[in-house]
Simulated assay, not measured.
Amino acid sequence: MAYVNVPKDLTKIKSKVLFNLTKRQLICFGLAALMGVPLFFLLKGGIGTTAAAMVMIVVMLPGFLFGVYEKNGQPLEVVGRQIIESCFLRPKERPYQTVNAYDALVCQYQMEQEVKAIVEKSRQRGSKKHGGQAQAHPRRKKTD
């Protein structure tokens, strides 16, 4: 009786299209072959077979890497973009800042105390000017 290994995490399984390769791998390998093989035949007569093969390998290598390499389920272009952003585009120093609700409440309380102090000072000045009696605003009607 034959045994088949079944992976525990089924999300890592990718559907194979042709030659046990995924669609992404087929596209990347095909593009690499479209660039490398004609280049080999163009350079073979001028620089020799060995040098042309080396140039072909160097030209096709990025296509193979984009098709095969994955880190934490992310393809090479995503990983590369994240590296470029973290090294060059984002600021190096990111100070830790929190939004503290308690600080906002303390600040609001201090502002209210300042406003109360200003109002009390204005009332005291008004009562001193008018001989101890606080008078109403001149434009307001007096209500009895």
Results as ranks from 00 to 15, higher is better:
Pro138Val: 06
Ile84Pro: 00
Gln133Asn: 03
Val4Ile: 14
Lys71Asp: 11
Gln97Val: 15
Cys28Phe: 05
Lys92Gln: 14
Met1Val: 05
Val119Tyr: 09
Ile27Ala: 15
Pro38Asn: 13
Val99Tyr: 06
Cys28Thr: 04
Ile13Phe: 11
Gly63Arg: 05
Thr143Lys: 07
Gln135Ile: 14
Lys141Val: 13
Ala101Gln: 08
Val6Trp: 09
Val37Met: 09
Tyr102Asn: 07
Ala101Met: 06
Ala101Phe: 08
Glu120Asn: 05
Lys71Leu: 13
Lys8Trp: 05
Lys92Ile: 10
Met60Ser: 10
Phe41Trp: 15
Lys128Pro: 06
Leu26Phe: 08
Ala33Arg: 03
Gly63Thr: 02
Val106Lys: 11
Pro95Val: 06
Asn100Cys: 05
Gly36Val: 12
Gln108Pro: 00
Arg81Asn: 01
Val58Asp: 01
Ile13Met: 14
Gly63Lys: 02
Arg90Gln: 13
Lys141Thr: 11
Arg90Val: 05
Thr98Gly: 09
Tyr3His: 11
Glu85Gln: 15
Val6Pro: 02
Val37Asp: 01
Val6Ala: 06
Glu112Met: 12
Leu21Cys: 05
Ala2Trp: 00
Ala53His: 01
Gln124Val: 01
Gln124Thr: 02
Met35Gln: 08
Pro7Asp: 11
Arg139His: 04
Cys87Lys: 10
Arg24Ser: 10
Lys44Thr: 02
Gly131Glu: 03
Glu114Ser: 04
Val119Gln: 10
Glu70Gly: 02
Pro75Ser: 15
Phe41Cys: 07
Ser86Met: 08
Ile47Leu: 12
Ala33Phe: 13
Val37Gln: 07
Ala104Ile: 15
Val68Arg: 13
Gly48Thr: 07
Asn100Arg: 09
Ile47Asp: 03
Gly73Thr: 15
Lys141Ala: 09
Lys71Tyr: 12
Val37Glu: 11
Ala53Pro: 03
Pro62Leu: 08
Arg123Thr: 01
Leu76Trp: 12
Gly80Arg: 00
His137Tyr: 15
Lys23Ser: 11
Pro138Leu: 10
Gly30Ser: 15
Gly73Glu: 07
Arg90Trp: 01
Ala117Glu: 10
Met1Ala: 12
Tyr109Trp: 00
Lys141Arg: 10
Asn100Tyr: 00
Cys87Pro: 00
Ile13Asn: 08
Leu39Tyr: 07
Thr50Phe: 10
Gln74Ser: 12
